[in-house]
Design a protein around this nucleic acid. Sequence first.
DNA 1: TCAGACTCTGACATCGATGTCAAGCACGAA
DNA 2: TTCGTGCTTGACATCGATGTCAGAGTCTGA
Lengths: 340, 340
Amino acid sequence: MSAAKTPTLADVADRAGVSPKTASRVLNHEGNVRPDKVARVLAAATELGFTPNEFARLLRTRGSTTTIGVVTADIGDPFWTGVIRGVELAIGDPDRDDVGHPQRFILSASTRERSDREPEIVAAMVDRRVMALLVVPTTTDQSYLGALAERGVPVVCVDRPAAGTDVDAVVADDDGGARRGVELLIAQGHRRIAFVGRPSVYTTAERIAGYRAALRAAGIVVDDRLVHPTITDAASVGPIAERLLSLDDPPTAVFTADVAASIGMLACRRTRSWRPAMVAFSDFDAAPVVEPTVTVVHNDPVELGRRAAELVLDRLAGYTGPPRRVRIDTPIIERESHLA
Amino acid sequence: MSAAKTPTLADVADRAGVSPKTASRVLNHEGNVRPDKVARVLAAATELGFTPNEFARLLRTRGSTTTIGVVTADIGDPFWTGVIRGVELAIGDPDRDDVGHPQRFILSASTRERSDREPEIVAAMVDRRVMALLVVPTTTDQSYLGALAERGVPVVCVDRPAAGTDVDAVVADDDGGARRGVELLIAQGHRRIAFVGRPSVYTTAERIAGYRAALRAAGIVVDDRLVHPTITDAASVGPIAERLLSLDDPPTAVFTADVAASIGMLACRRTRSWRPAMVAFSDFDAAPVVEPTVTVVHNDPVELGRRAAELVLDRLAGYTGPPRRVRIDTPIIERESHLA
DNA sequence: TCAGACTCTGACATCGATGTCAAGCACGAA
DNA sequence: TTCGTGCTTGACATCGATGTCAGAGTCTGA
């Protein structure tokens, strides 16, 4: 018994009594092969269980794979897995494009908080000839992505625009969403509104900008002691709540800028007697179920991923125009917590 | 201006004034090259920005990639993205193995509810020479996976064991977890306990088995009108709740077999006056935050993925023993809802 | 000075597929 | 009969890397 070996095109050709090239012609539907040989080749291929060596094919044809590379910041955060889910939904969407396209795959990797690895990972993916790249930028400079454009690899940045270069990008309306969320609290008469969330280069900055804009428009002076873009997880909201409560003039409402902050804030409401009004950025499973139900600015990672994938598919389908920037709406879902 | 082209090893060799083979030797640290040539080759490589063509290398060396294929049932379910996250955590774990291993990637695809595509997707991944495969079986027969073992590709089944073949598998203790969960309700005096969850070949069957075992052990006759493994999403719990409430002898407690059922049940508690005791299979973000906090059987997808990846890494590191079956504990996290 | 061992080097074949090209053949028209 | 046309076919080169191997150069010790 020899070890099981993958049959090659030559094996198929031998068995069918034709040349490798003819076998290739049959299997690639090139036509111009006599029917009896077609039959013999197809029979031989099924009998041997032939599957072409993708690497050899790609090497010869200088083709790219049917794989989309996705580089996220941290796979530990459900938000990014949501983005990946969106990409998967889009590239598998049967309505989207020509029936019978080959199975597309997602090649994913995360920078795991080490933004210096971002270029390395991107380079490794390019070496693997991904047909397109979807990047959540974590470094402060994405100019290295320019080299990809030269190689003709479509690139789309997700959640944050690329810095230092102009490529397609899909971002949420962080600024506007935060502003509308805070306005909702102001409309309820609140003037002391805290901001709690994770630190993050772009999105948090945008959300703080929206928060400030809403306050300013209402003639409310921003009190920096109420602004805490410093949490790491839900548990870290506790100490911040303590600090807010110990102020002479504690906030009567809170804007939570991400899911971790929202969950943490809900925990504080349960364990402490503090019951501020609340609006959260990003919806979450439990928001319509907890007491009170949570009013949110809807920020859908799946939609981010889906739209990003669509930009990619457009480019693959031939779009060669200038970089486009898509802004995903962040509508308010009014529930109860902003009334509290 | 010609189009930007990827430099080849031959280009590097030309520029350094050596043969391609010598350049190859330098770049692969084979040694036995005169220092001045080493320097010239390295210089030429950086100047040209040379990166080796992975396909050519893999073709020649008959090597496999540094990619792990992950086939999940449905990327629309956060549970499976959790599994992927676990895999990512494990393969990126710096403690786990030899420093400086090349960047590992995850190649993912989902069967999208069409279980007939499972073998196709697996085949496509094998053609792409993934170094290992992690499969969530959805078909009723995984005997086709046997062919992979012959090719020496490590395979691990996740969440459900493979049918018709014997390969490594990582499953949760569905049976025992459900049994312990239901026992908790019985200990509170409940004798009319409903079961609500999604339909699913293996895991739901196991959880129902645990549910039945607990009832039987307590001398309670199982009433099939209380068993509803039929929901599709959280919203579909509503009609089931109606049906349960309309019984002559409605249940006083509910065991929800998955997150969707749990969220749905919480929604019912809010909108209807029905307040049954509750134990849920699978923890979720909001469980410790809602009123009442939800007692759960902890079923961690991340841990499933992580352990599965570890089995894979063991095999890649040389383990050649018989297939192993790992059962992940499903400990009870006692909160309040089982007391209601 | 010379044999033998060791270092260094590049020509060439190879992995498995496909592009190129020219030859072989059948057919119809002139 | 002869030529042109178009269909079939396979030999061969090619993609970019690496394994093989033999030959050239260097160094040792006798």
